[in-house]
Structure formats: C-alpha cells, structure tokens
C-alpha cells in the first residue's frame, strides 16, 4: 500500500519534470537537433578533406617516429631505473634516444599547426562560398554555426589524440610485456586531455581569425604569426629584458628570488610554455616544482616521485591559465561573430 503510494508520487514528480523540460524546450523556440546535424556535417567535411588526411598522416608518422626513438634504446632506461616508481609507460612518451624529440615535445610543436589548420577557414570560407547567409536564413540561432565548428573540431581532436595515446600504450604493452599501472594510465589520460585543451586553444585562435579576416590565407597566416611570435620572438624579447635586469653575483638572495620569480612569471602567458610545463610535470612524476624554490622550501624534502594528485596540484595554475586562454579566444570570436551583420558574399 505504502510502496504503491510512493510509486504514484514518484510518477507524478517524474511527469512534472518531463513536462517542465518539454515546456522549456518549446519556450526557447528551438531544439538542439539542428545543432547535432551541423556538428555531424562539419565532422564529415573535415574527415573527407585532403587537409585532414595529410595532417593525420603527419601526426601518425610523428607518433611512430617518436615511439621508435623511445623504444630503440629502452633497455638503457630499464637498466638505469631503480625501485618501484620507474614508470616505464610514461617513459614511452618522454624518453628519446636523441635522434627524434619525444612524443610530448612533438605534440607541443605540431599541436598549433593542427589547431590552426582545422580552424583557419571555419567562418570565412562559409562567407566566401555564400553559404553563410543561406545558413543564417534557417531557423537556428546564430551561435550554432560557431559552436558547431568548435565542437566538431574538439570531437575530431579528442578521437585523434585518444587513438594515438592508446596506440602508444598498446605498442608499449607489446614491447615491454607489462601492463601500465593505474597511476600511469591516469597520467597518460590526463596528458591526452591536456593535449586536446592545448590544441583547442589554437583551434579557437584560428576560428577567431577566421571570423575577423575575410581571406582564409590571411587568417591562416595570422595564426602562424602568433605561433611564431610565442615560440621564437617572445622568448627572445624576454631574454633581452631579463639580461638588463639580471642581479649581480653578490646580490641579496631576496633579489635573486624576485628576479627568478619574474623570469618564471613572464613566460607564463606563452601557451606552448604552459603546455610543456604541465606535460612535463604530469609525465615525469619526479618533478616537484615549476617555479624557483628557496633553500628553506626544499629543506627536508625526500627525493622521490609525487603521487598523481600532487602533480596535478603543481600544474593547477598553468592548467587554469591554458583553459582561460582558450575561453578568451572563444569569447572574442563569439562577440565578433554575433555582432557582425552577415551579407551575401
């Protein structure tokens, strides 16, 4: 009797909730089906395009190359390792015999290229083909166009990076003959997620340029210019500034500390730097800190690997910074796109 009453009540509550959702949908005037259709179309377009196939080949070859270079003298790694915390699987991503950079460095280098090439003609090609104004005439909110482009890129990147990471783990299983530990697996997955965030920053940046510039070539070039600026010119600039500020050998420890802090702080706005800091901490559990440490801080520390949670805590600010940069790019392109008047061609 009592259970029946309860069931009835639950039923009523459920139906009310359902009704609420239905009403909500109707009031907002649109549903999400067109959005999914647009995302589907974007993914299909990308996968079919030559550009994506070429990129896929490049990334795949890179993955193979770095895997080869890390496995070719892996016996050295095994010989040199001591104790339980040797993290063989993580070494697959970070170790190299010197002929080719390891995988995580490759991602840091090729990621921007991947992101830029996925997004640089997102909006302006639709505009130039005259399809944007036709799309705008359909009963969909305007931001669907932008969001669909971004979400489609994100899904593609996620599939690609997870595939690569799992392929490397698989190759490692065969080569090493031992399964990864849970912590190694967690670290690898978080590295993969991080790579997706990092590349999606460049994707968003290039989408922003594609909203801003009418010509696809201009927007691609601007994306590459930003990438070059951050990898080549900005570090150079910082070096010049820091050279002038370098304290003398006999300066107070406090001054040296402040100088080191400044040196560390100035590079924190470079997305590549953020990425390489986070990945190195995540993939090398022995790293205990990113910024400068005073002797007092180091005193009493026991050398050894950090647990996953602690490594994550170290890079939390960097991670937040990278996500913030990504969001910033998206917000700028959003504002620019929503306020734009769309005319045919």
């Amino acid at each position: 009797m009592k259970t029946g009453h309860l069931q009835l009540q639950t039923y009523f509550n459920l139906s009310r909730i359902k009704g609420f959702f239905k009403r909500d949908r109707r009031n907002s005037g649109y549903d999400s089906r067109p959005f999914l259709i647009m995302v589907q179309k974007e993914i299909t377009d990308s996968v079919r395009s030559w550009r994506f196939i070429i990129l896929l080949i490049i990334i795949f070859l890179t993955c193979l190359g770095s895997l080869y270079s890390s496995l070719s003298n892996f016996s050295e790694v095994i010989k040199n390792s001591t104790g339980e915390n040797s993290f063989f699987f993580l070494k697959l991503f970070t170790h190299s015999d010197g002929t080719l950079p390891p995988f995580f460095v490759f991602v840091g280098f090729l990621g921007p290229l991947l992101g830029i090439s996925l997004g640089f003609d997102a909006i302006n090609s639709e505009q130039n083909r005259g399809t944007l104004s036709r799309l705008m005439a359909q009963p969909i909110p305007r931001d669907f166009v932008l969001n669909a482009k971004f979400v489609a890129g994100l899904i593609l990147l996620a599939i690609m990076f997870f595939t690569l990471a799992f392929l490397i783990i698989g190759a490692g299983l065969i080569a090493l003959g031992i399964p990864p530990t849970a912590e190694e697996f967690l670290r690898i997955v978080s590295f993969t997620v991080l790579s997706i965030v990092y590349v999606s920053f460049w994707l968003n940046l290039s989408i922003f340029f594609s909203v801003k510039f009418k010509q696809a070539a201009t927007s691609a070039l601007s994306g590459i210019a930003v990438w070059l600026f951050f990898t080549v010119f900005y570090p150079l600039l910082i070096n010049i500034i820091l050279k002038g500020l370098r304290p003398s050998q006999y300066a107070l420890p406090r001054t040296v500390y402040i100088f080191e802090k400044l040196k560390f702080g100035l590079v924190q706005i470079i997305p590549n730097e953020l990425f390489s800091e986070i990945t190195s901490v995540l993939l090398m559990p022995n790293i205990r800190s990113l910024g400068p440490l005073t002797t007092g801080q180091v005193a009493g520390a026991i050398p050894g690997a950090l647990p996953f949670g602690q490594s994550l805590l170290i890079v939390w600010p960097q991670l937040t910074g990278l996500i913030a940069l990504t969001m910033l790019c998206f917000i700028f392109s959003y504002i620019l796109f929503m306020r734009r008047e769309i005319r045919s061609r």
């Binding site: 377009d45 083909r129 005259g130 399809t131 104004s133 036709r134 005439a137 045919s344 061609r345």
Partner: peptide, 12 residues
Amino acid sequence: VGYLPEDVGFYE
C-alpha cells in the same frame, strides 16, 4: 520565411 540571398552559395 524562405530567403534566397543575392548570389546564393551551396556546399560545392
């Protein structure tokens, strides 16, 4: 409302 823009474009 159906709207045919000037110089309409399609996915080629």
